[in-house]
Design a protein around this nucleic acid. Structure first.
Lengths: 257, 257
DNA sequence: AAACGTTGTTTATTATTATGAAACAAACGT
DNA sequence: ACGTTTGTTTCATAATAATAAACAACGTTT
């Protein structure tokens, strides 16, 4: 439910309509969606028809309900070739996988959240999963904290002033002062570590990828099941390899630290 | 360059603008894009500003050029949870991976092309890659041919009447009559096999996933480097496991063959 | 340095365009 | 057979987007 009337133009209405499909329920009827967005059903109807004709949405012939069109799968291709980080990081990620045998993933900040933009899953039977598109708040998990820690001070401050630290699991950091010292630590040591902050039983190590100006581009991370995460030798090895790879990748992006 | 004036409304113009980012070059200036789409620069300017405010596009602060916004990464998440096939197929794909150690991928038809919607890469050093969003024509490669073979006759006919069989590699099928007999074969035996039709040195096996009405939902495929593909035992084993898994998945989707 | 040719962006007017209440049609549940 | 819901279409009206032209900010060339 949108509050009041912010007077959207037709394109904005179309985009808001598309965004609605990211929420639950992920299929909508015309009137249902119209009242959710506080728009006229006829308007939503016409918008959906237009979106449908360009395959941005699909309509189930039976239920007549609308859902997101799989044209979006195609944009993924474009994204990955448009963003230089992803392409640059992939070989390093493969290298880490073959060395550590753990799930590697790459994350960026998108609208004050962490979003996974690339991944390679561990071949082991017990492995962590981290699908592309996966999202979490910037205070939960190593990848998230690493991204936040290496952001600009302005961003960190605005983030901390806006966001409430609502716990994701029982291990999630819930105090702002604890988060601040944690971020300082991460900047100091150059990597982030967490266990079960986002998913219970899942450990994670993360290091930043920086560009020629030292500006944060992404975080490269390993997601490791707790049972292997708690083996000190394995953790130490993973940490060393990850930091090395992330640093090499940063150098590829022009960073000279 | 668009021909003539099909009189698009504003939403259509916005969608066409988004679609332009799938083409090369993948970053656009306002005037450049305007002349490409045969639209007024001011119009494109306003559209881009709107798209930018919703993060459907990003603007490079330095070059002022526009590129696709990584909000699209998020839609991927939604897609994969919206389409029941993807969710249903994943466990079977993992199973095949652990049995065959080869890259598994899932494909659907999108606007007369094959598009990869899910994948798990082989852990081996020599492995085939098949990223999500990857696209190919429906006549090149096992996954593509399998999708086409199990489509409706109407679709096949309209496809063959519209598309030209332009070779992707030197092994690509380039004769319509040969393609027809190939499709009949695939329907007969229930799976498709190819070697180097889309990528030289890459073999592929594919089987369809059907719903309760026997309608095609997707094709599940193995992508195998030629050196292992040409081991008859390995190929036979992969084929058996893939067909078994695809059939089990079809049953999950309600198919009773 | 000055003139030029590019950009991206803004402005103001006109006419096209989207809008929304109501009507319609089809499906479902009772 | 009824009422209720759905998706969809209609059409007069009002709001919106389109357009050409001007503006501002760079780079390059003269």
């Amino acid at each position: 439910m949108k509050q009041s009337k912010p007077k959207l133009n037709s394109i904005q209405k179309a985009l808001v309509t598309l965004l609605a499909f990211q929420e639950e329920p992920r299929t909508w009827g015309v009137r249902e969606l119209a009242s959710h967005l506080d728009l006229n059903p006829a308007t939503v109807q016409r918008i959906l028809q237009t979106l449908k004709s360009y395959r941005f949405v699909d309509q189930d012939p039976l239920s007549r309900q609308y859902r997101l069109g799989n044209i979006f799968f195609r944009f993924l291709n474009t994204l990955q070739s448009t963003y230089p980080v992803t392409k640059a990081a992939l070989p390093f990620m493969k290298q880490i996988l073959s060395q550590t045998q753990e799930t590697v993933h790459l994350n960026v900040i998108e609208d004050m959240d962490r979003v996974c933009v690339e991944n390679i899953e561990s071949p082991q039977n017990l492995r962590a999963s981290m699908p592309i598109g996966n999202r979490s708040p910037l205070y939960a998990g190593a990848s998230s904290k690493c991204l936040l820690a290496f952001s600009t001070d302005e961003f960190i401050e605005s983030y901390l002033s806006i966001k409430k630290l609502s716990p994701v699991t029982e291990s999630t950091i819930s105090s702002i002062t604890r988060l601040r010292t944690e971020l300082a630590n991460i900047r100091e040591q150059g990597y982030a570590i967490s266990l079960g902050e986002r998913t219970s039983g899942l450990g994670s190590i993360s290091a930043p990828i920086l560009d020629h100006k030292g500006v944060l581009l992404a975080s490269m991370s390993l997601a490791i099941p707790e049972i292997r995460f708690q083996d000190p030798d394995h953790q130490k090895f993973c940490l060393k390899e990850l930091c090395h790879a992330a640093h090499s990748c940063s150098k590829t992006m022009g960073y000279m630290g």
